[in-house]
């Protein structure tokens, strides 16, 4: 039983990381129809922003988080402005290739300037163990899960209740008419990139705290997994990203507990293939109705 609870917490922890990143994929997809392949690297950049904020400015956890979220937002918005906006009317393929290019650029730029060796992430939290229902839990695990859930609730509030959130949902229904309401599409897209990047940065810092090393390529695998989570839940749907993230986290943790752990990454991709075969629009997705 305690073993099960232990694994459950691990799964929640991993799932919330995936969900935080998956939200960025799904939100950008919702407004632009673009799979932003550079999103995993914003997660990495966020971890490095946290690293430098904590080391150079000696800030504690919460201010480090906030500052890194702001920096990552700025980075995400800048990428959209420079690389994606000029291609707004270009074929979808150009946009996707550009996103892959940005991804490689961020990875290699980081490696070129900071070096490729893993760096140990500053200990922003005094780790304490305690026992919960017989399972050994760290305060870090609790923090990761709570911070993630808190931010998901904040995002949910923004998307459901604020004007900009309503505009974000409206974009995927009808881009053109949004302008007729006096709403600038550019503004909506900018906010979307800003929010998604801030969540990815949080995930980056939480991973940095948990593992606790970061490197310029840390965004690749985690980014792909989060992308799978978004597709699994139904890309373009906020709830889909959450559901997908947690399901993937659970499956990975329990698969690793039962199978040799080297199978773990393979399992995520196997799930992707199965979902795409059985339900291409994801678990929460509705079948696409093609208009004639």
């Amino acid at each position: 039983m305690s073993y099960f609870i232990q694994q459950l917490l691990n799964a929640l922890q991993l799932g919330s990381i995936y969900a935080l990143i998956a939200l960025g994929y799904t939100m950008v997809y919702g407004v632009l129809g673009l799979i932003n392949f550079a999103h995993g690297d914003i997660f990495m950049a966020g971890a490095f922003f946290g690293f430098f904020t904590a080391y150079l400015l000696k800030l504690p956890l919460i201010p480090t988080l906030i500052l890194s979220m702001l920096l990552a937002s700025a980075l995400g918005i800048m990428i959209e402005r420079i690389a994606y906006r000029p291609l707004r009317k270009a074929p979808r393929m150009s946009l996707i290739i550009t996103a892959l290019g940005i991804s490689l650029f961020l990875e290699n730029f980081t490696r070129a300037t900071l070096g490729g060796q893993p760096r140990s992430f500053p200990k922003l939290l005094e780790i304490q163990d305690f026992t919960f229902l017989g399972a050994s839990v760290t305060n870090l695990q609790v923090v990761i899960i709570l911070v993630s859930i808190f931010l998901m609730l904040v995002l949910r509030y923004i998307v459901q209740n604020t004007m900009i959130g309503k505009a974000m949902r409206a974009v995927s229904d009808n881009k053109e008419v949004l302008a007729l309401m006096g709403i600038s599409l550019d503004t909506v897209i900018m906010v979307t990139f800003g929010l998604g990047s801030a969540l990815a940065a949080t995930a980056g810092i939480l991973v940095g705290l948990a593992y606790p090393v970061i490197d310029p390529y840390m965004g690749i695998t985690v980014g792909w997994k989060a992308f799978i989570a978004a597709v699994l839940g139904g890309i373009g749907l906020i709830n889909g990203a959450l559901v997908g993230g947690f399901i993937l986290g659970f499956i990975e943790i329990f698969a690793a507990a039962l199978l040799p752990s080297t199978y773990r990454d393979g399992i995520a991709f196997t799930i992707l293939i199965i979902v795409l075969l059985l339900k291409p629009t994801g678990l929460l997705g509705r079948p696409v109705i093609k208009k004639v």
Binding site: K166, R169, A170, D173, N174, E176, V177, L180
Partner: peptide
């Protein structure tokens, strides 16, 4: 402008 086809935000 009330556009052709009504321009609803269907999911809202």
């Amino acid at each position: 402008h009330v556009p052709e086809g009504r321009g609803m935000f269907g999911n809202l």
